[in-house]
Design a protein around this nucleic acid. Structure first.
Length: 920
RNA sequence: GCCGCGGUGGCGGAAUUGGUAGACGCACGGGACUCAAAAUCCCGCGAUCGAAAGGUCAUGAGAGUUCGAUUCUCUCCCGCGGCACCA
């Protein structure tokens, strides 16, 4: 018998929508029918990008999960907000529009309609009255408004908060220099600023990509190779928040691996910057080499005499090369420096002709510049070239050391220069071996007296195969202490200072594309970049004939001269609009705020609604967003919060709890993709099995945070489960609905299932929750069936067919309770059966069942008896058996007696409710 | 290379966090019902020895702690994901 899901599902979806049972109540909470406390619960899923391909079976995994959680919260009396919207700006739609010759706005509308139909067919309890769309001018007006906040703010290092630019004190020297100098000073400080940046350039998309978007050296969108290119870009100063983005992770409940990923992405490293004085002199690299002799094919110093007094004040000193190192304690082993090919001083040296092998150096730099960052990083060969004519002085040993350039040193991180310690760094070691550079292991060091550390023996210099271990370098001190001593010494002698570096870079915020929010800036020859007046927002996207970016890489908007030409808001002279647009991460960085108050025309959201709804109680999405989107939106939120645009009491983090789900793979465990032809369309599944089966299967398929392969046969299992439930409830005469037929065993099972399902929903273990419901359903259908299912209730006893003791029959309505447990998972069938039982209101606003602690335990349990750790007997005993009785019973068992072989037990261990373990 | 996660039947996966390994489901085998099929119901289903009772071996490999280890510790192997000449 197949239950008529087609009829049922459409019917209830319509009814729920008409009754608005999934609408979140306004903050006041008055008149909220059926609400117990009015306590809120904000469940959030990553709003989808409405692509032309429609919904993928991966989408509903997240949506169903949070749907289940929010439905339970609603039944518990919470005022639930579970909103939905569209993250619709961006390249896929633009590329689709170009290909199919439709306007992006039209394509988006169509895609949204399709997604809406699909999502509604799955019966999610979204509050559709709060639907938002990032491409709606009423929405992106506020995205632009926020951009202007970035533009008009600076980061106040003293208070560690962003503040309005109007509060920035301008140093007198700039004021004296006049308005231009003041403007320049302000531009330096802005949170959104324009800078010429080495960007990742995708030649096929004709678009600049953030580093984060160009992972693997290929364009995230088109898969093409990424090149390097200089371009003036809008940047947002996310780096100002690096520390707080790490620190505040302590205040939120994120999965450990998400937290770790965030921290690693930001990449804080503490160390020191060290100044190496460099010397322009006649000795060449070969003359430096002559200090060393060859041993075992490596160049080593044989007699290592340490000079305690650094020589950077000597007369041949020409200047300073600053390096950053996380291991200042290895400074004694620094035997050469390596500069990036972009190192600023290089050009000057080449011009001055002080480099003797200038031609080699120039060639090398040109080669390196042609390569993209990615290619340079992929290059496993440690290429490099020496700067003949330049040498540097190791400030700790006073030695002259050679200076090299190599493209494995990146200009964008640290100072663009490193000190190489080949004995203690594997990359440096490889490089040194390849180029015949000296390797000095720091075993114990002579520390300059100023460091306040007693002198020990000289550095022992030698080299063996491989690098040295990370032992301590300074007089046997632990690494951290050694680092501290070294930093203290460096700072005292003004040779360097404590420095913190981050991997995180500022956010490249411009795109030279059409389908994004226009950046609301006007360029005036007189006034420079000027913000569009707030009252003129939104700056709407104009209609364009062609969406292809221009060959020059400018946005298609640049071609619309009527749109580009505007009056300067400040001086009213002729000026030009910014034609770049924002990345599609802009709109998704704050959408969860808009959900709180989506129809507000005066503010992006009222303080009152934000105070009520924020922070998000549970946010779930894909693993692929655990670095980028999560980081950007946390940053964006903190910025608004700093400015007081989000009430203080909301807290400094937008998401109280973040969870990420894994992928649904194709059959056989490979990733679903169009090219492999193994993509499963939810529509097809719903047509054959219905939404409830689909939802249940997506949750039963495996642990929520583990990849799971789609399995068309596996889906039959959950289908059978629902059909069994349907059959059971169709038979009102079934003994399970006769209170007298319930034993205390099945009653205990009912209570255990209530607990299990509730707990599992909270911890997002949906697969085991469903398994528990299956067990209960099996037991219920077995009631009165005589013999069946020995294992379904409590091991080892089957549901005892005998009637429970008089008066102890369940006061709880098992049939109602089961449906309530099922309701969040399979809402349609649960509602249908609920109403068949005679209920007039929806099961989804019925009260979530509670369990009785005292009934969680069955009357008896199976006592396991082990001898030397091996199970030798099992016996059914009363639940409240005493240790003494249990042990006695165990020792009396013939099987145990046999296993003991007449020996005396050395030790008897009793685990309450479980086992007796006898050691002989 | 670094970081993170994982490795349990033919398959997806359970295991109360140190206490009966394999719940639940799929697949498979046998049976009942049926003229037959489907559906449903019942029984079986890690390997191995055994007619059976029962025994032995089993959670990637190897050691260790323990009365007892899938769970804790160490070493190693393999897979997946993320990041990367980040100094």
């Amino acid at each position: 018998m197949t239950y008529p899901f087609k009829k049922i599902e459409a019917k209830w979806q319509k009814k729920w929508e008409r009754d608005g049972i999934f609408h979140a109540r306004e903050p006041r909470g008055q008149g909220a029918k059926g609400l117990k406390g009015g306590e809120k619960f904000y469940g959030l899923i990553e709003f989808p990008y409405p692509s032309g391909e429609g919904l993928h079976v991966g989408h509903p995994r997240s949506y169903t999960a949070i749907d289940i959680v929010t439905r339970k919260k609603r039944m518990e009396g919470k005022n639930v907000l579970y909103p939905i919207g569209w993250d619709a700006f961006g390249l896929p739609t633009e590329n689709f529009a170009i290909k199919h010759k439709v306007k992006p706005a039209v394509a988006t509308k169509k895609n949204v309609a399709n997604f809406t139909r699909q999502l509604k067919s799955l019966g999610f309890g979204f509050d559709w009255s709060r639907e938002i769309d990032t491409t709606d001018p009423a929405y992106y007006k506020w995205t632009q408004w926020m951009f202007l906040k970035f533009f008009n703010s600076y980061y106040d290092e003293a208070t560690k908060r962003a503040r309005p630019l109007s509060e920035l004190k301008i140093p007198p020297k700039f004021r004296l220099q006049g308005p231009k100098a003041i403007a320049a000073y302000l531009d330096e400080k802005r949170m959104a600023y324009k800078a010429s940046a080495t960007i990742n350039w995708c030649p096929s998309c004709k678009i600049g990509l953030a580093n984060e978007e160009a992972q693997g050296g290929v364009c995230e969108r088109c898969g093409g190779k990424v090149e390097k290119r200089e371009k003036a870009q809008w940047m947002i100063r996310i780096t100002a928040y690096a520390d707080r983005l790490i620190e505040d992770l302590k205040t939120v409940d994120y999965l450990d691996r998400i937290r770790t990923q965030q921290i690693n992405w930001i990449g804080k490293s503490e160390g020191a910057s060290v100044d190496f004085s460099f010397v322009i002199q006649n000795h060449t690299f070969s003359s430096l080499r002559s200090q060393y002799t060859k041993r075992r094919g490596n160049l080593v110093r044989q007699d290592c005499h340490v000079v305690a007094t650094p020589r950077n004040d000597e007369k041949d000193s020409e200047g300073v090369i600053t390096v950053f190192t996380t291991r200042p304690d290895t400074l004694f082993g620094a035997t050469y420096l390596v500069l990036s090919p972009e190192y600023p001083l290089l050009d000057r040296w080449l011009q001055d002709g002080v480099i003797k092998n200038a031609r080699n150096v120039q060639e090398y730099c040109e080669g390196a510049r042609k390569k993209s960052d990615i290619e340079r990083q992929e290059n496993k060969e440690k290429t490099g070239v020496v700067l003949d004519g330049i040498s540097a002085v190791n400030p700790a040993t006073g030695e002259n050391i050679p200076v090299w350039i190599a493209d494995y040193v990146l200009s964008g991180y640290g100072t663009g220069a490193i000190m190489a310690v080949p004995a203690h760094d594997e990359r440096d070691f490889e490089f040194a071996k390849k180029h015949g550079l000296p390797i000095a292991q720091v075993v114990s060091s002579v520390i300059p007296a100023q460091a306040g550390i007693q002198n020990k023996k000289e550095i022992v210099c030698f080299t063996e195969e491989g690098t040295a271990t990370n032992s301590s370098f300074l007089n046997g001190l632990p690494t951290n202490e050694a680092k501290e001593k070294m930093i203290a010494w460096l700072e005292k002698g003004k040779k360097g200072k404590r420095t913190v570096n981050f991997k995180l870079r500022d956010w490249v915020f411009s795109r030279q594309r059409y389908w994004g929010e226009p950046i609301p800036i006007i360029f005036c020859d007189e006034c420079g970049p000027v913000a569009v007046a707030e009252k003129s927002l939104p700056v709407k996207l104009p209609d364009v004939r062609r969406y292809e970016p221009t060959d020059t890489g400018e946005s298609p908007l640049a071609k619309i001269s009527t749109w580009v030409k505007v009056k300067c808001p400040t001086c009213h002279r002729q000026a030009k609009r910014e034609t770049d647009t924002m990345p599609n991460w802009a709109g998704s960085s704050w959408y969860f705020l808009r959900y709180c108050d989506p129809h507000n025309r005066k503010e992006f959201a009222s303080a009152k609604s934000l105070k009520y709804w924020m922070p998000v109680d549970l946010y779930n999405g894909g693993m692929e967003h655990t670095t980028l989107h999560l980081l950007y939106s946390r940053f964006w939120y903190k910025f608004l919060w700093d400015l007081g645009l989000i009430p203080e009491e909301c807290g400094s983090e937008p998401y109280a709890r973040r969870h990420s789900n894994a992928l649904i793979l194709g059959e056989g465990g490979v990733k679903m993709s169009k090219s492999k032809g193994n993509v499963v369309n939810p529509d097809d599944v719903v047509a054959v099995y219905g939404a409830d089966v689909f939802r249940l299967f997506e949750m039963f398929i495996g642990p929520f945070d583990a990849d799971a392969p789609w399995d068309t046969r596996g889906i039959e299992g959950v289908k059978r489960f629902l059909e069994k439930v349907w059959r059971l409830y169709s038979d009102v005469q079934h003994p399970t609905f006769n209170v007298g037929c319930w034993t205390s065993d099945i009653e205990a099972l009912l209570h255990r299932t209530i607990k299990k399902v509730g707990d599992d929903i909270e911890s997002l273990n949906f697969n085991t929750a469903i398994s528990a419901m299956m067990i209960l359903a099996n037991a219920m259908s077995d009631v009165g069936a005589g013999s069946s299912r020995p294992d379904s209730v409590s091991r080892p006893n089957r549901v005892n067919a005998s009637v429970g003791e008089g008066g102890r029959t369940p006061p709880l309505h098992g049939r109602e309770t089961f449906l309530k447990l099922l309701a969040p998972f399979a809402p349609h069938i649960a509602e249908e059966l609920w109403q068949k039982l005679g209920h007039k209101t929806s099961i989804h606003v019925a009260e979530w069942p509670s369990y009785d602690e005292t009934k969680l335990v069955a009357d008896t349990f199976e006592l396991v008896v082990q001898v030397n750790g091996k199970v030798r007997d099992r016996m059914t005993v009363p639940s409240d058996i005493s240790e003494k009785d249990a042990t006695a019973a165990a020792l009396e068992s013939p099987k145990i007696k046999a296993a003991l072989e007449g020996k005396e037990p050395k030790k008897i261990i009793y685990v309450k409710g479980r086992l007796v373990s006898i050691a002989i």
